[in-house]
Design a protein around this nucleic acid. Structure first.
Length: 561
RNA sequence: GGGGGUAUAGCUCAGCUGGAUAGAGCACCGGCCUUCUAAGCCGACGGUCGCAGGUUCGAAUCCUGCUACUCCCGCCA
């Protein structure tokens, strides 16, 4: 549509140049935008404004000239010059109604595109270490990351979701010691309790399971406890598997799936870390200082150099991070998106710098990062921080159990990741128009309800027949809905291109609003069949788009509420 | 001190990559269920887009400088 109009304007400009009404050396950038206000028509161009100076004419005069020179076209009913010199295009009703046919035709595919062209993309998210249950912050990562995967898949990318974790570092050792202490009947307040041990009640449950000799099957870990309290290594393996399984259950309850679980320890086992060190040394960006080996990350935009090998011979976490991302690159992911909490933002520059130092033609801005800000959980107007089980923070499971999967996912994905999020439990629980999740789902259920009612009335509806009567759609509410539906594919494309799943949530809220308004203003099940057919077609189109959009957010679209 | 993020209605937030009169929801006030689901609708109220400059036909949006809040700044991950 925009292309068509662009072509028309281009032709008009060409003919004006030919007639000498415009200088031959102008370089027009024809831009067509959707209008924000329907009184401005359907589409608008600012071409006269941008060209006014070069053409040495007042914008409105120039707009008049361009309009007069526009070739005839069926889809344009009329044009109008407005404001400082915009050209507004009013498209034909039949053109605007065509979106309904397209939606009912394409169904689940409506809004999808193939801009990814089957290229590989990896989305890494959550990546929680197995030291405890997932908390609300991980939940935000899961909601945003999973929705991103769905968006990318919907736009033609070959998506792989990945969960990276450390199963062998100091934190894990700490975890094993905490479990061992519990096995020995110690509590966090005992003098013999490990320094910085994990204090949550789940450690006790873990210790009991270990002593019972429980068998654990996590997505990527399978361990049977030997029950030996002295065997710290056995405890470590068991604890990792146990907590991974816990997290799996959290993720499953949340409807989030991962294709790959990647262990930090595997980078050591495979020699990847050592190889990365070698490469960095060979490329000459390292130096020794005070017994440690440093990488000159300041050569690549960091504000200070970083230690990569400690004076005790061990590596800092920075190095496996670089090795890990080098591994991603070697796996052929030219696009990688890392979804993380913003408290890790300092690793962004560091990892990119490390990758540049490898000098392996990895693009400078690679990989992409989506960083989400903190989540605060509110209840009764107060911050709800404590979870007894986890010992400190609010767990994702608590939230899902309390407000349900759909509401949890919606609220965690509905805001721009860059803005801090206040999760209002009371709002998420409310079964009223306060609650946007139900507001959107209700619109979907309403359409389903109408269709059920149709049968009860002894009527039927066939898409094919209904398509003949789309001309019946024409009141203001219906036009607003048609406009809104028409935008959906663009919304999806932009959300995927910019890593912004929250825009889908915003859109659905607006679409549902348009629908509810229309529903209250007009009756769908009227006796006059052509009108009824047309309205049901529009309703079905709305239902389809809501279902498609909710799916991108991982939220269900119930038929009955 | 250095860096990231944020600042829009009383509250929670959008704002389609620079467009026309800045939008929703909540809260508050007033209306709408003998008719397809009232988890809904309609109306009213509510703004110096943090402050000051700059860029241009045009700025909430881009640039610079301030201010406030927040996160990070370890040979921890």
């Amino acid at each position: 549509m925009k292309q068509e109009l662009t072509r028309l304007i281009q032709q008009a400009l060409d003919s004006l140049v030919e007639q000498g009404q415009l200088p031959a050396d102008i370089q027009p950038q024809v831009q067509i935008d959707r209008t924000r206000d329907k009184t401005h028509g359907d589409l608008a161009s600012n071409i006269a404004l941008t060209l006014a100076k070069a053409a040495k004419q007042a914008p409105r005069d120039l707009a008049t000239l361009i309009c007069a020179a526009l070739p005839q076209a069926d889809l344009v009913v009329r044009t109008e010059i407005a404001g400082p010199g915009f050209i507004n295009f009013f498209l034909s009703d039949s053109n605007n109604q065509a979106v309904v046919r397209r939606i009912l035709d394409e169904r689940e595919a409506f809004g999808r595109n193939n801009s990814g062209g089957g290229q590989k993309v990896q989305v890494e998210f959550v990546s929680a270490n197995p030291t405890g249950p997932l908390h609300v912050g991980h939940g935000r990562g899961a909601a945003v990351g999973d929705s991103l995967c769905r968006l990318l898949a919907a736009t033609g990318w070959d998506v792989s979701s990945e969960f990276y974790y450390n199963d062998a570092g100091a934190q894990i050792n700490n975890l094993a010691l905490s479990v061992q202490a519990r096995c020995r009947g110690l509590g966090p307040d005992d003098p013999a309790w490990p320094q910085d041990g994990y204090r949550g009640d789940y450690i006790t449950e873990l210790a009991q399971a270990y002593q019972r000799g429980e068998k654990i099957d996590a997505e990527d870990q399978h361990v049977t406890a030997c029950g030996d309290t002295d065997d710290v290594e056995a405890i470590r393996q068991f604890a990792v598997a146990y907590l991974r399984r816990e997290q799996d259950l959290d993720l499953k309850a949340f409807g989030v799936h991962f294709d790959v679980y990647f262990l930090e320890s595997s980078l050591y086992l495979s020699g990847a870390v050592e190889a990365t060190v070698q490469r960095l040394v060979e490329q000459g960006h390292t130096y020794q200082h005070e017994g440690a080996m440093w990488l000159r990350t300041t050569d690549f935009g960091d504000d200070k150099d970083r230690v990569m090998r400690k004076s005790d011979g061990g590596y800092t976490y920075f190095l496996p991070d670089v090795a890990y991302h080098q591994n991603k690159w070697q796996r052929g992911f030219q696009r990688v998106i890392n979804e993380q909490g913003a408290d890790h933002h300092s690793t962004v520059t560091r990892v990119r710098a490390g990758l540049q130092a490898l000098q392996q033609d990895i693009p400078q801005g690679w990989p992409d990062y989506v960083l989400h800000q903190m989540v605060t959980v509110m209840r009764d107007g107060e911050e709800a921080k404590l979870s007894k089980r986890a010992g400190s923070y609010h767990t994702l499971r608590d939230l899902i159990d309390e407000v349900g999967r759909d509401a949890t996912r919606y609220f965690l994905v509905a805001r721009a990741p860059s803005s801090q999020l206040t999760f209002d439990i009371d709002l998420a629980l409310s079964q009223s128009n306060d609650n946007p999740v139900y507001y959107i789902q209700y619109a979907h259920a309403r359409v389903c309800s109408i269709m059920r009612k149709l049968g009860e009335q002894g009527w039927s509806w066939e898409a094919q027949d209904a398509m003949q009567h789309l001309g019946e759609l024409g009141d203001e509410h219906e036009k607003a809905l048609l406009r809104r539906l028409d935008r959906y594919p663009e919304i999806v494309a932009n959300a995927a291109a910019n890593n912004e799943p929250h825009t889908i949530a915003t859109y659905l809220r607006e679409l549902a609003g348009d629908f509810h308004t229309w529903y209250n203003a007009s009756k769908m099940l009227v006796s006059e069949q052509p009108v009824r057919d047309a309205r049901l077609a529009l309703s079905q189109a709305v239902r389809q788009v809501i279902a498609n959009g909710l799916d991108l957010l991982g939220v269900s679209a119930p038929e009955v509420m």
